[in-house]
């Protein structure tokens, strides 16, 4: 079933891709082939391969139970939040929060997770900012 969904999605994607490729404006200085031809070829390959596993799907994978899936969605949400908040909070605070969360959800006890998170953040800051001089995001406190 999973493969069928992948195949269906692939076909929709390929049709959308080909449609978008035909919409590319042609510049008057274009070469013989133009900017649309290769994307259309790619779209066709994408569509054909999707069609194959729509018709002949493999045995589907074992999807995680809802609780596990929720875990993954939450982790992704934390990563997105991290990306957004990094410039606002600065590197050390944002990283300590995010890695504490991930460590906790991977099975460390809460208090220990906070410790590991702070150490991870501080360690990365020490190695990459202080020793190697990489520019990391600066928050309101300058780190």
């Amino acid at each position: 079933m999973s493969d069928r969904i992948l195949g269906g999605t692939g076909i929709v994607l390929s049709l959308f891709f080909i449609w978008q490729a035909t919409l590319i404006e042609i510049s008057p200085f274009s070469d013989v082939v133009g900017p649309s031809a290769f994307p259309i070829i790619i779209g066709v390959v994408l569509g054909l391969s999707s069609l194959y596993f729509l018709v002949k799907p493999d045995v589907g994978p074992e999807w995680p139970a809802p609780a596990r899936l929720f875990e993954i969605v939450m982790a992704v949400a934390v990563m997105v939040l991290y990306a957004e908040l990094l410039p606002v909070l600065g590197f050390i605070i944002a990283t300590a929060l995010a890695s504490s969360y991930l460590t906790w959800r991977l099975g460390t006890r809460p208090l220990q997770s906070v410790l590991v998170g702070v150490l991870t953040s501080g360690g990365i800051y020490l190695v990459f900012r202080v020793i190697l001089g990489l520019s990391l995001a600066r928050g309101p406190f300058g780190f």
Binding site: A98, L102, T120
Partner: peptide, 30 residues
């Protein structure tokens, strides 16, 4: 791994952020 994997994630973020300094790239990476 429960300690190691978050470190891997964070180092990945540091590397990508270091190139462009943009949150947009981090979102694309996620």
């Amino acid at each position: 791994p429960r300690i190691l994997m978050p470190v891997v994630a964070m180092v990945s973020f540091v590397g990508i952020y270091g190139i462009s300094g943009s949150s947009f790239d981090l979102l694309v990476m996620v």
